[in-house]
Amino acid sequence: MGEQACACEEKYKEIEEAIGEYKGDRSALIPLLQKTQRLFGYVPRAVQVKIAEELGIPLTDVYGTVTFYSFFSLKPKGKYNIQCCNGTACYVRGAPKVIERFEKELGIKAGDTTDDGKYSLQVVRCLGACGLSPTIMVNQDTHARMKPDKVPEVLKKYV
């Protein structure tokens, strides 16, 4: 999937306004990238260029920051972003089997997005809900005490 046409014009307008507020303020870089990521589901190149121009920093710095932090992606994420925790507590209580099942059900590997753009699968380090491990998050919802067999049930909730 490339940078396809979408309701992008509005989004671009919104992000441009936000960028405009921080002219020359380098410390706004990460908050602006976060806003972009939330708005578009990824950080389009055009926005990176705009941010670099307005904040007065080289494009390489913007790109370098985008690629450093795992929160940002250069490819569009799916409508539903599934984050499987593989922190110590989840790992000890069987997270790898849950991840495996998601991969099987969605037919993708962790880190990828399904062809229809619906689901992204990510393995993350710790969601901080260790008391209820293994844990996953779909967008902002946390699902606790996951089991491989609960995977199809969870996916059914997000169509």
Binding site: N86, A89, Y91, C126, G128, C130
Partner: peptide, 11 residues
């Protein structure tokens, strides 16, 4: 920035 897996007191 409580990044240690297995820690959630700050949260």
């Amino acid at each position: 920035d409580e990044g240690d897996p297995g820690a959630f007191m700050d949260r």
